[in-house]
Design a protein around this nucleic acid. Structure first.
Length: 376
RNA sequence: GGUGGGGUAGCGAAGUGGCCAACCGCAUCAGACUGUAAAUCUGACCUCUAUGAGUUCGAUGGUUCGAAUCCAUCCCCCACCA
């Protein structure tokens, strides 16, 4: 078995920058391109670990900020780390809390050393800087820790984006020096908003630290116009080293993933399959739709015809629509089960298309079904 | 039979002379969700040829410049007493 942190590139697409790879972690291999379900609070909402295992899920996310608020590190330490706590045997990647700098803007204050958060649960003030974040991730024992970054919103001024890059870089340097859990990898994060020069500078200085096992593109899909996303991904990926895994944080629209893979991205995570499931929307090979729609009332077909997930094998749309309408827990469990299956199916079909030299077709088909609405 | 209370849009429920096409909740319908403060949020919800018009608050008639709101009669429901 290759050493922890090894990233093997097993195939490169001659027609795009896509590649197939395998990243070795302390809890096994992760085959890329990969979709990582988000399990912020030590659970992928509404799903049991064995249901993810059934999808051959090799890696999950956890969240530093949220797990530090609840249950707190004393509990995690008591249970011997996040894997044991939630009984997840494969890899875990922990987000550093950098995204909460963005999503909890109203509840935090920036300083150059770190961020004061006011707990969204009980208002308690807590400080998180690069040291604190890495300290928590060490206790969590994740396989991949992310550096603590500042994820600025869009729109934001070039001056502010520049400041965020500077903070992210200085924090990254601190993160790189912190003690890690055994076998823990650490990824750097490129910020820079919609400003290519800033992204370039951030990427190059991160590389110069020479301390990271992989590189992430952060601050994407935080309010910027759709047409700015892909060019930014392309230019950033092009600076990152070929031999290290690349992770596009938070992005999960299907066509964005297939285009990003074509640009050379290896890893994705997104709340979309589970969140939309809870809100009654399901993904299929032919697009997404709302199960709650009136037209599904008497529909005896499964959520998606031909789908082999547990929800589709047994239940009708009409039944699942009913469960959602009466707020029965099983309803959102079934849509989540289906959406997660659809996401894994999507990624595995994408991998197969690369391997079989059909990736161009695959991208075209994905864009046709899931692409952004053509500009008016 | 007597006494008291009550009938408001799919349901529940405010409103007791003009600011009422009528608060609010539920249900229903549509849309949004991208490193999860999200089983959440936004909007629509009498009708129409719809930034305007028409018809509503048990029924009919009346008072009034103006009524869901006041008066009369009738119909129906509930409680208690016979």
């Amino acid at each position: 078995m290759p050493g922890i942190g090894t990233f093997e590139i097993t195939y490169e697409d001659p027609h795009s920058k896509a590649r197939l790879g395998r990243l070795w972690t302390a809890h096994g291999p992760v085959d890329t391109p990969v979709f990582m379900p988000v399990g912020t609070q030590a659970t992928v909402k509404s799903m049991a670990p064995w249901e993810l295992e059934a999808e051959d899920c090799q890696i999950l996310l956890g969240n530093t900020y949220h797990l530090n608020v609840r249950p707190g590190m004393d509990v995690i330490e008591h249970f011997g780390g996040l894997h044991r706590f939630q009984d997840w045997k494969s890899a875990i990647l922990t987000d550093s809390g950098g995204y909460q700098v963005f999503s909890l803007t109203k509840l935090r204050q920036m300083t150059s050393e770190g961020v004061w958060f006011q707990s969204h649960v009980d208002g308690t003030r807590m400080f998180m800087g690069p040291k604190e974040s890495m300290g928590i991730q060490r206790i969590l024992g994740s396989d991949i820790a992310m550096v603590f970054d500042e994820c600025p919103p869009c729109p934001c001024t070039p001056e502010y984006a520049c400041q965020a890059v500077e903070r992210t870089l200085s924090w990254a340097a601190v993160c790189a020096e912190q003690p890690r859990a055994q076998g823990q990898l650490v990824f750097g994060i490129v910020q820079g908003g919609v400003y290519p020069q800033l992204r370039e500078r951030c990427a190059k200085e991160l590389l110069a630290l020479g301390a990271f096992d992989g590189y992430a593109i952060g601050g994407v899909s935080v309010g910027e116009p759709e047409e700015l996303i892909m060019p930014g991904v392309h230019m950033t990926v092009d600076i990152l080293p070929r031999e290290r895994p690349r992770y596009l944080m938070g992005v999960g629209q299907w066509w964005q993933m297939s285009e990003s893979v074509a640009a050379g991205v290896d890893m994705f995570d997104c709340v979309m399959p589970t969140r939309l499931a809870r809100h009654g929307t399901v993904f299929t090979r032919n697009g997404k739709y709302s199960v709650r729609a009136a037209g599904n009332r008497l529909d005896e077909r499964p959520l998606e015809e031909g789908c082999s997930c547990m929800a589709c094998r047994r239940f009708s749309r009409g039944y699942i629509r009913h469960l959602l309408n009466v707020s029965e827990i099983l309803g959102v469990r079934l849509t989540a089960l289906h959406n997660m299956h659809a996401y894994f199916d999507f990624i595995s079909r994408m991998r197969a298309s690369i391997r079989e030299d059909r990736f161009g077709e695959f991208r075209a088909e994905t864009a046709r079904v899931y692409g952004p609405a053509p500009a008016e």
